[in-house]
């Protein structure tokens, strides 16, 4: 279960990092192109730390358990050959249903407002989540949390400022920002769903009670929206499934692109 939990955190980081990296070279102004790429690199760095840890956890499993963890033919091949897996194997060889990232992070960039809104919802959640994860009884996870929190604090500052800037900017930017926060709203509920992995994590003291973060998250979002002159979205129906491997169309395309080299040319050094 700890493996699934670690992988989920890694998947969130990898997929949001992937989305943000799509902006590189296409940003609205050079300075912000550079800023967003820094954030993308932070997420990617966190993904790598978590994947390495996940690979360690996997490699330490009893041999009998390994074949049933991932359905990917490629990973089963490695297991059958007795090869230890590494960060790239978990990132590039797992099938879509074994990815456990939030639906929110796989949503497309669309425009700067959507990108900012997606980051803002996720950064706010991350801020409280990783603050709490520092108390994990798992020293590896606690250490990753401590390092990540510094980066995430900056991410949150960046996305909050942009929400305010666009919300309280021009008429056009206000409309676009309102549209973006409203459209993405239905993907926010999933962050606070306690699924089996979350319950196991809380029960054994290595993870975070995400249900308890909801109030903090709401307050923070509301405060920023107030300053941005944006209305809190009213919808109550929430999408979920990402944490259990049921994704939107987007993930398939992301993986097709991201995994193509490793899938086409298996077992090579790059």
């Amino acid at each position: 279960m700890k493996l699934a939990y670690t992988l989920r955190l890694a998947d969130d980081a990898l997929i949001i990092g992937h989305r943000l990296s799509e902006w590189c070279g296409h940003g609205p102004i050079l300075e912000q192109d550079i800023a967003l790429t820094n954030t993308s690199l932070d997420h990617l760095g966190r993904a790598r730390s978590l994947y390495q840890y996940a690979a360690d956890l996997f490699n330490a499993l009893p041999a009998a358990e390994k074949p049933s963890v991932f359905s990917s033919v490629a990973i089963q091949g490695l297991v059958a050959a007795g090869t230890a897996i590494d960060e790239d194997d978990v990132a590039y060889l797992r099938d879509g249903w074994d990815f456990r990232n939030l639906l929110l992070v796989e949503q497309p960039n669309n425009d700067w407002a959507y990108t900012v809104a997606r980051s803002f919802y996720f950064d706010t959640f991350n801020f409280y989540f990783f603050s709490a994860l520092q108390q994990s009884n798992d020293t590896a996870l606690a250490a990753i949390a401590a390092k990540s929190l510094k980066e995430i604090t900056y991410h949150l500052r960046w996305s909050s400022e942009w929400v305010i800037r666009l919300g309280d900017g021009t008429e056009e930017s206000h409309q676009r920002m309102q549209q973006a926060v409203s459209d993405l709203w239905m993907y926010t509920g999933e962050m606070f769903v306690m699924n089996a992995a979350d319950q196991d994590a809380v029960q054994h003291g290595y993870g975070v009670d995400v249900d308890a973060l909801k109030t903090l998250w709401m307050e923070r979002v509301k405060a920023v929206f107030d300053e941005a002159t944006l209305a809190m979205p009213a919808g109550t129906w929430m999408q979920s499934g990402g944490k259990d491997g049921k994704h939107t169309d987007n993930l398939g395309y992301i993986l097709a692109e991201m995994q193509f080299m490793q899938r086409t040319y298996p077992g090579m050094e790059w």
């Binding site: 102004i29 050079l30 300075e31 912000q32 550079i34 800023a35 820094n38 500052r157 400022e161 800037r165």
Partner: peptide, 20 residues
Amino acid sequence: SLHAADEQMAIENARDVYTR
């Protein structure tokens, strides 16, 4: 030097551009 809309953004852009 760099471009920014306000002083806060200027400091953040400086951090991102000149202290990578």
